[in-house]
Design a protein around this nucleic acid. Structure first.
Lengths: 350, 350
DNA sequence: ATAGAGTGGGAAAACGTTCTCCGAGAATCT
DNA sequence: AGATTCTCGGAGAACGTTTTCCCACTCTAT
């Protein structure tokens, strides 16, 4: 019932605590016979090392804090999953902190995690500006990597999706399937996703010479805004609507259907992120899939690097290229959609 | 830079470590003047108690392990969120373990959490049978509450949704809006959700005297099965399809639309769980909303109870009544759906 | 005056590890 | 043979708290 300690294993195997620790941790060579006796005793008593004591002594808890704005944001669960797996593969555990999209809660959670002596922090920042202070302060104490959302330059390592590439993929695709009257529905925030995707859209349309057309409407990253934006955009008779994320796109899809507009016949719609719903929308949504696994792997890798080294060296900014996922919502107008759903791609499983 | 300890606060305030601990923890009355000096010094040095040391000494980490099958299952994020908030409100932190739907991984994660000295475990079991051993073993060491999914009787406290009530709500609703030729698409597994929802469906249809009709098709809890099941059910010309969860229902919706069947005109469709997608489907899905916040609160409450008491006493089984959410997919046939979406209910926010 | 209770404070033991010394014996070198 | 290294093992300090003693002192009641 009560836990078995090193002392008891030592007594049972007739040697010292130090020796038992050594053979179990493999930290120094130990005589074959002694080792056997120790292992035997440990086995018999069902000894399990107390990680708290180990942490106190060795000043490392083997624990990483994962701080995010809102686990219910549909893009995060898969990211959390990958991060969790990557960390567990290194024998680390994840302390989860959901911030309810509130920077003050975020600051408090970060402080709490530091008190709990996490070895490192992985943070998806709530807000570009308002998170900065807390993040910077935390980065002074412990290796810290920002994930997905930035937080000002030079604060900490950041690994994120290359929004410019993603937007370019979308626009190339639309143009190459004959769309010309393209418009953009984005978000007005100051977050990196909002800013970068808008900037990329504008740069790319210019590069492609589509600059004549192009209403741009900015709201927020929500379904409701997607629905509302359709009404503001429709009068200019576009043949494609590029949305800054999937939620906006799905909202747009809903409103367009309601108004009897044919997608993709009259208008193509694209999203960004590839959340699970994107594949389920009707028509299934063409979108940009963030390289979730690679993002997680890279972030964990960077953490490992700082944990191994002295946690100094320059801040890194890693941008990973996303992937275009073409589905029915952007099918060429020529093919008059008998079975538009066949474009659906398989799940990201494995 | 390096952390401030009790010793340093003691030295700075000219008193002993014991006294500092006492005033900061408020564990014993201490002279007013001394207390002031201590607090002042602590403040000035920026002292933060080391939770690991505290945990080692007081044999309590203030940490709870949350073990779940797959964070990407769309029903879980909101549950995780509520659990996390409820626990944090008590000053506890959450150690997250995602099991990848694998009972062996689950067992390993549970063992790891126990080594990390979690004060308690909150487990959404992967499998009714295969999780039993690991859960039972863990329950012997630490307060443990099962959430959402059971794991055999008497293993541990269990708080879950009352599937029978939920199914009754659905059937009453369908019957009272004129549906009679009702059929069921469920899952064949041995998990409590699969078994209970099927049993409840059968009991309730019998009670309502609908027993003449009623094909029942069993597959799994997936979109694909929902799509496939439609083809097997359609020949019997039902006017309502009751699905064992939302994924199945959304799959069914998709296939029905593809076949040109009018929902809800020809056939009503209902789901179970109220995952975020349910509201976004077209038509929006009538479903049973699990009382997520209450589930989390009750589970945490039970944990607290066992943490306070001696972790004995009988195992409890708490069933919470869910709520029917009527949306467009089950609108009465009479009202020939001008704007079927208006039935949509607001988000669960706040 | 003296015993008894009550108060404020310190010294030091514990919690379960890891790790630094240190010593005893065996093996290797000159 | 004596000096040096190596190997194996133990004693005990340390990690930063909490908590148990214990002491010194001040009140109050006899």
């Amino acid at each position: 019932m009560t836990d078995v300690t090193l002392r008891e294993v030592a007594r049972a195997s007739g040697c010292s605590v130090a020796t038992v620790s050594r053979v179990l941790a493999g930290t120094r060579p130990v005589g074959a016979e002694t080792a056997r006796k120790v292992r035997e005793a440990a086995e018999k008593l069902g000894y399990r090392p107390n990680q708290v004591a180990r942490a106190l002594r060795s000043r490392s808890t083997g624990t990483v804090g994962l701080v995010l704005p809102q686990i219910t944001n549909p893009f995060f669960p898969s990211l959390v999953r990958e991060v969790e797996h990557a960390l567990h593969a290194e024998g680390r555990a994840v302390l989860l902190a959901d911030c309810d999209d509130d920077p003050e809660v975020e600051a408090a959670r970060i402080a709490d995690l530091l008190d709990r002596q996490v070895d490192a922090l992985l943070i998806i920042a709530v807000d570009e500006r308002q998170s900065r202070d807390a993040v910077a302060k935390a980065a002074a104490h412990v290796p810290l990597v920002l994930l997905d959302r930035g937080c000002g330059p030079g604060i900490a390592d950041l690994v994120t999706t290359d929004n410019a590439t993603g937007m370019a993929l979308v626009l190339d695709h639309l143009v190459s399937t004959g769309r010309r009257r393209i418009c953009f529905v984005g978000a007005a925030g100051t977050g990196s996703a909002a800013v970068e995707r808008l900037a990329a859209y504008e740069a790319e349309t210019k590069a492609l010479g589509l600059h004549g057309f192009g209403p741009v409407e900015l709201g927020d990253f929500s379904l409701e805004w997607g629905r509302a934006a359709v009404d503001r955009i429709l009068p200019s008779r576009p043949d494609a609507v590029v949305c800054a994320n999937d939620l906006i796109a799905i909202g747009a899809l809903q409103r367009l259907r309601q108004l009897g507009v044919d997608v993709p016949g009259d208008i193509a719609v694209t999203g960004f992120d590839d959340i699970p719903m994107a594949d389920l929308a009707d028509p299934a949504l063409t979108t940009v899939r963030q390289p979730v696994r690679a993002l997680a792997a890279e972030a964990v890798h960077l953490l490992g690097h700082r944990l191994a080294g002295q946690n100094d060296g320059p801040r890194r900014l890693v941008r990973l290229a996303p992937e275009l996922v073409v589905r029915a919502s952007s099918a060429p107008r020529a093919s008059s959609a008998e079975d538009t759903r066949s474009t659906r791609t398989p799940e990201v499983e494995q």
